[in-house]
């Protein structure tokens, strides 16, 4: 057949775009996805989310019980306000509800949750300057085994303040990285995927972030 187009290159490009669109559509519809490829062992969260989407209140409760404290800790350490951390934690569950019908466990659930959490956090940070206004006392955390009024209490309070102020001075990317790995125990692969960096880059950045955090804590007055 004779090519009547004066711009065969553009025609080719349009064909490519149409092809990619069709492939994306098929992939979205699950036609192209190989169920065996990249399949993860079913996590309980996946089942809860599916049940929750169907209106099961108990499933939402299970999800909440498992994720409320990790999320609260992540948000509190990131923005230094418990009230804001509570708001954002509840917002995560609203986003989960919205995402439930199309959720596909291609990565660990923790990665999915903290991907949502980080997006919310960035919006929040953009909206209001981060100011650690309401520091929680060390007794609020489970790392203090037996709170007393003596030396141990004083040291815990000092360290708590140091950490929170140092985290406030750490750049967002470094802070999130430190929290995902040291607070949430996310494995390096999941954290790297979530942040869109390679495993090696993650190790380097994590080392730098950790060093910086320690320096900032030491430099607190």
């Amino acid at each position: 057949m004779r090519n009547i187009s004066p711009c065969p290159g553009l025609t080719l490009l349009v064909n490519h775009v149409l092809g990619i669109t069709a492939l994306e559509f098929l992939w979205r519809m699950g036609v192209l996805s190989d169920p065996a490829a990249g399949a993860l062992p079913a996590e309980e969260e996946t089942k809860w989310l599916a049940r929750g989407a169907g209106g099961d209140e108990q499933a939402w409760q299970e999800l909440f019980e498992k994720w409320k404290k990790p999320l609260l800790a992540f948000f509190y350490r990131s923005i230094g306000s418990l009230a804001a951390a509570e708001d954002l934690t509840l917002e995560v569950f609203i986003r989960l509800h919205r995402a439930a019908p199309t959720y596909q466990p291609r990565a660990p659930f923790a990665g999915f949750v903290f991907h949502i959490a980080r997006n919310l956090l960035r919006n929040e940070v953009r909206r209001q300057r981060r100011k650690p206004a309401d520091l929680l006392p060390p007794e609020a955390f489970d790392y203090v085994s037996a709170p007393d009024d003596g030396e141990e209490r004083r040291r815990a309070a000092e360290l708590e303040e140091m950490l929170q102020l140092a985290l406030a001075q750490l750049p967002e990317a470094q802070r999130t990285l430190v929290l995902l790995v040291y607070q949430q125990n996310l494995d390096h692969t999941t954290a790297a995927e979530m942040l869109g960096i390679t495993g090696n880059a993650l190790r380097v950045q994590l080392h730098r972030a950790r060093q910086k955090l320690k320096e900032l804590m030491q430099s607190q007055p």
């Binding site: 209106g55 209140e57 509570e86 509840l90 609203i94 019908p101 955390f141 040291y182």
Partner: peptide, 30 residues
């Protein structure tokens, strides 16, 4: 310090969650 989690959540937070939970369970995600 980094690994520390909050020991407990506030009653107000739990109350807000219960309201939200009922809302989530009662609304079909679009």
């Amino acid at each position: 310090l980094l690994a520390g989690r909050l020991r407990r959540t506030s009653p107000d937070f739990e109350l807000r969650w219960r309201e939200l939970r009922a809302e989530l369970a009662g609304t079909k995600p679009r």
